[in-house]
Design a protein around this nucleic acid. Structure first.
Lengths: 203, 203
DNA sequence: GTACTTGTATAGTCGGCCTTAAACAAGAGG
DNA sequence: CCTCTTGTTTAAGGCCGACTATACAAGTAC
């Protein structure tokens, strides 16, 4: 049933199934991480097959294994890179006037990584730990900032939790709409956050 | 290695592995839906095995198939029920002063279903459709409400999107904290929502 | 008591997807 | 030219989980 003989099956003949461009190892690795970020950002870890990632990268799944030992390791590499980029741009210590613009810059620079981290990884028990440090960190910072505005108790806890969540959702919504009006984004989102905080105050 | 002979293996002997209480068909079905809601709410569709659901319900996985044809059908039944309950309590047409208390009542009445719908199902492409009608509906309503406060353009779209999202996240955060101070929950959350809307206004 | 329903236990099939193996093609650099 | 690296193709192997089949136990209702 198969060709069996005849011509040696595509010899750079015609327009063959476009062989992937040859790349030095390091570059290919980054390109795979880019592709994997896009692929995973669409459907999350479980629902994304390695063949999907390979196709997105324009490569065979075999090549993936020459760079990463397993699907889980590839995914962690993707998350780690996104996480590192984020931390490098925003900083992890405190939240001041420069933080929100930085956050928005980071999100715009790597929208798929941003969505992947906070839309998917946050709900995947196996990988939750990657961003849990970020999450608990920002909750703590918020908690401190609210300490003198809201009396101790469940509603301060609630506010400390909802403010970071809202911030991230606001940025993601802005990304999903195509990052319109980037110059005023920080001002707009910042005012909304401020609105939540004001409303949470106990007069 | 196995017993091979001897006593006929548990004959109501001692405290046997607790045989499940016998139930009329309809009641068992509801109880399975309850259990499945809890199980799926923990880890989502893909990561939850039928054996997890069965264990949660205190039955064998075989019994699940006497009530539902497949895992997917069971999951849809769970989502549909949660969705119906929500719609029955809140209503789908408009959003007025009674809607937020109703939403909070619905969430408190079925916290697992609420979380399952908006934490997990919203991110699962196969089942997104179940709540997409709700989501687009509430976005439209919000859009209309904001029509005379925010000029047409991307920021009105953004606000129309972020307000429902914020509302849901605020309720979920309140659920996660153990539903504290339920009498003031609607007032608190309502003020926060109002804060977002106010901040979105263009003066 | 007989028949039906609800349950268990056991054991298997089947398909999907991660993972590995092996042989071959072809650019890059000495 | 020879070799190393980066690719492809093809073909399994292996596990896990959905799904099915069968036989049996025990309430329930007539």
């Amino acid at each position: 049933m198969v060709a069996e003989a005849g011509q040696p099956a595509r010899r750079t003949s015609a327009v063959g199934p476009e062989r992937a461009r040859r790349m030095p190892r390091a570059e290919r690795r980054e390109q795979i991480l880019d592709a994997a970020t896009r692929a995973f950002a669409r459907t999350g870890y479980a629902a994304t097959g390695l063949d999907d990632v390979a196709a997105e990268a324009g490569v065979t799944h075999v090549i993936l294994y020459r760079h990463f030992a397993s699907k889980g390791e590839l995914y962690r590499a993707v998350l780690d890179r996104a996480c590192t980029r984020l931390a490098d741009t925003v900083g992890t210590d405190d939240f001041d006037d420069t933080s929100l613009p930085a956050l928005i810059r980071a999100a715009a620079a790597d929208p798929d990584g941003f969505r992947l981290l906070f839309r998917h990884a946050a709900r995947e028990p196996e990988f939750r730990d990657v961003i849990d440090t970020i999450r608990s960190g920002s909750t703590d910072v918020t908690h401190r900032h609210l300490a003198d505005a809201i009396p101790e108790g469940p509603w301060r806890d609630w506010a400390a939790r909802i403010v970071p969540t809202f911030t991230l959702e606001a940025v993601i919504a802005w990304l999903d709409l195509g990052q319109p009006d980037p110059d005023r984004a920080a001002e707009r989102i910042g005012r909304a956050i401020h609105g939540v905080i004001q409303a949470a105050h106990t007069d």
